[in-house]
Design a protein around this nucleic acid. Structure first.
Length: 356
DNA sequence: CAAACGTGGAA
DNA sequence: TTTCCAAGTTT
């Protein structure tokens, strides 16, 4: 695995490559931590730019700890699982205030911190501190279940896979090994069509020997997602300020900037932020982890009205990029609708020829 | 411990 | 179009 990693390691902004690592270079624990939290349930391709932006805005854990909550949530917007961003800040503040800006160099110490669970603690311990801890993420579950031909379905198989993975973790270069086995899972031992022909583990893989590699790991089927509905209210006042609110800490899109909405359920009760002749401009479709959402977008001119919730934010201080993706979709629809209205106002009669 | 918690790309 | 799934953690 380590030989394979020496020649096939993927380059990433937060990673110290195998050559530099063997020359004695160590990654910055802050950068490793930030990348690992971002990578939770999130692809490398998506994380890259977010990681670079965060490092540019907040180069050290002390910088991040001193940041405004709203700025960090805005920078996280679009990455999803927003509890990660809230815990990221909590963790940075603990490390900065209580630990002199240094991450604990032990599994147990890391596990105490907000947002750091078994995987992230092992990743930090091994990658940043070169401790012989074992990472078990989705990649490792797949690689191990195939090498040992574990037929037990996940998540039941998790403890078994963890024990097997621990047996393979070497005392030498545990950090590079952790990254190697995850790279292998991401590039060779993939969920569909694994590239067994070029796999360094081919000779020792029980699933490959039996020809069942594509069927592993087995998983319990997922529940079908229900569809919920809701309403969202996109409005500006006479000054052109946008009515926005910060969603409650707990729950969906917690802590994020958003337009006011009704509840989201099978039969939502309308909840406009003020009485007006609300106009429905269409429906936004969005899928969350556990349900589909059909969100009907309403607009109205707020004029001089005093809403029951939310705050008017001047257009100059509002960036659509600070919104979570669902709200961004609602914003884009409202923009397109108002653009169309303006265009048709300027050119009221401009019939598009019918194309048969 | 099951359920909650986002999003985008690939098949 | 729909499902699957990606370097999981918290409650």
């Amino acid at each position: 695995m380590l030989d394979w990693y020496d020649t096939h390691a993927r380059a990433m902004p937060w990673r110290v490559g195998p050559a530099d690592r063997r020359a004695g270079q160590r990654p910055d624990p802050y950068a490793v931590w930030l990348s690992e939290v971002m990578l939770q349930q999130t692809t490398v391709a998506t994380v890259r730019d977010y990681f670079r932006r965060f490092i540019a805005l907040w180069p050290t854990v002390d910088d991040l700890a001193a940041a405004e909550d709203a700025d960090v949530m805005a920078a996280w917007a679009g990455l999803g699982y927003y509890a990660r961003a809230r815990n990221l800040l909590k963790c940075a503040r603990v490390v900065s205030r209580d630990l002199e800006g240094r991450f604990p160099a032990s599994l147990a110490g890391l596990l105490q911190l907000p947002g750091i669970g078994p995987y992230t603690a092992a990743a930090l311990a091994s990658i940043a501190f070169d401790l012989p801890e074992t990472v078990v993420d989705g990649n490792v579950e797949r690689v191990i279940s195939r090498i040992f031909r574990v037929e037990t379905p996940l998540p039941t198989a998790k403890p078994e896979l963890t024990a097997l993975a621990q047996r393979l973790t070497p005392a030498q270069r545990p950090g590079d090994y952790a990254q190697a086995i995850m790279d292998l899972g991401a590039t060779i031992c993939t969920p569909r069509n694994p590239a067994c022909g070029i796999c360094p583990w081919r000779a020792g893989c029980a699933a490959q020997a039996a020809g069942v590699q594509a069927d592993l790991p087995r998983k319990v089927p997922k529940a079908v997602k229900p569809t919920r509905r809701g309403e969202v209210y996109v409005t500006r006042n006479a000054s052109g300020d946008w009515l926005l609110e910060t969603r409650p800490e707990r729950g969906l899109l917690g802590g994020m900037l958003a337009f006011p909405t009704s509840d989201w359920s099978q039969d939502p009760a309308p909840a406009p932020p003020f009485e007006a002749d609300w106009c429905s401009i269409g429906t936004v479709k969005h899928t969350f982890t556990h349900f589909h959402l059909l969100l009907e977008v309403h607009t109205a001119d707020a004029g001089q009205k005093n809403p029951t919730r939310g705050t008017f934010i001047p257009d100059s201080r509002f960036r659509a990029a600070d919104l979570p993706t669902l709200m961004r979709k609602a914003f884009d629809l409202a923009q397109a609708t108002s653009d169309n209205a303006q265009a048709s106002h300027k050119r009221p009669v401009n019939p598009v020829p019918e194309v048969p």
